[in-house]
């Protein structure tokens, strides 16, 4: 017996150098084994993969559209400006000082002060009513500060805050956001984004449950096998591993399927959207999925698959034991 134990110890020492290698090759083998199991039942596997794919394609596609819309909205930012109409008793010096002070704020990129006389000159030049104004003894036009807001997010709430705050300044009679529709558009995009986030959350939950259920059935179908390998000394981690890889594969293929679905939708929608964009004189066009988007989709789908499998495994594996 002692000779045998010495042998055992010796071979153990030889092994430990390649222990990590053996561990990695075991993982490779289990990954391949789980993939094989999945491919051996293509119809059943495809059902799960399709559910995952559809569930992820919906929020993925919406998010992609939103990103496209937001890219277009960048060009609106340049046209956005706030006009601050100053009270009549504000002097040029005061007006300039206010304008300069506003430029110092983070929410405002630049300001331009238009004095009462400049406003008058401008009005005369552009309106063609110069003669009428000449008849008036005083200048009826107020001084104006044109401010360009910084429209980085969160846009809608920030803008309304800024405008009401500017309006509360004593020298300001009236603050007008000249391009009100931009604010509305941003507000709409914000709402859409929140809706997508909620829907995405719910659908991710659906993916977890779909994978969890598939793995649960897989565990029950392989009950005998689990008992046997537990009997011959498999650790919980060893028993768990093929199922976790199974979940990972389901998730990954589900993600690929989602990408396929979104790409198909993009191809189908390209023509109609071009037409619509032309009617609106817009540069809007759908771009293909970005590499970051592809990675996010695949990453989150594999992670969801893994998590779903983990849920099933931690619930059901402990109950299966030799008796």
């Amino acid at each position: 017996m002692s000779r045998q134990r010495q042998n055992r110890r010796k071979s153990h020492a030889q092994q430990s150098s390649s222990r990590l290698q053996a561990y990695l090759s075991h993982h490779r083998e289990v990954a391949a084994f789980s993939l094989g199991k999945l491919l051996k039942a293509p119809v059943a596997s495809f059902m799960t993969i399709a559910v995952i794919g559809i569930a992820l394609a919906l929020p993925g596609a919406f998010y992609h559209f939103l990103k496209n819309a937001q890219a277009v909205s960048q060009s609106w930012d340049d046209s956005a400006q706030i006009s601050l109409y100053l009270s009549h008793d504000t002097s040029d010096e005061q007006g300039k000082a206010i304008a300069a002070a506003l430029t110092g704020r983070a929410e405002i990129i630049s300001t331009r002060y238009i004095s009462q006389s400049e406003a008058l000159a401008e009005f005369k030049q552009h309106s063609g009513f110069g003669g009428i104004l000449d008849a008036l003894s005083t200048n009826p036009l107020p001084g104006v500060i044109i401010a360009k807001p910084n429209l980085s997010r969160p846009r809608s709430t920030q803008l309304t805050h800024l405008i009401s705050e500017l309006e509360r300044m004593p020298a300001v009679e009236l603050a007008v956001f000249d391009t009100e529709w931009v604010a509305r558009m941003y507000a709409i995009l914000d709402v859409v984004q929140s809706v997508i986030a909620i829907v995405a959350g719910l659908l991710c939950l659906a993916v977890l449950l779909a994978v969890g259920n598939t793995i649960r059935l897989d565990i029950l179908a392989r009950k005998e096998e689990i008992i046997v390998i537990k009997l011959i000394g498999a650790s919980d981690a060893f028993v768990r591993r093929p199922f976790l890889y199974g979940g990972f594969w389901y998730g990954l293929f589900g993600g690929l399927f989602a990408i396929l679905l979104i790409s198909l939708a993009l191809i189908l929608l390209e023509g109609p959207i071009q037409t619509l964009a032309k009617l609106y004189n817009s540069e809007f066009s759908l771009r293909i999925l970005s590499p970051a988007m592809l990675l996010t989709l695949l990453g989150s789908s594999s992670l969801l698959g893994l998590l779903g499998a983990w849920l099933a495994v931690s619930r059901h594996l402990a109950q299966i034991k030799p008796s």
Partner: peptide, 20 residues
């Protein structure tokens, strides 16, 4: 286990123990 060969059945304890 009847989903794998005789070799793989006998190899199971060694795989569990983490041999190369």
């Amino acid at each position: 286990l009847y989903d794998r060969s005789v070799f793989d059945n006998v190899a199971l304890p060694l795989k569990i123990a983490g041999y190369h």
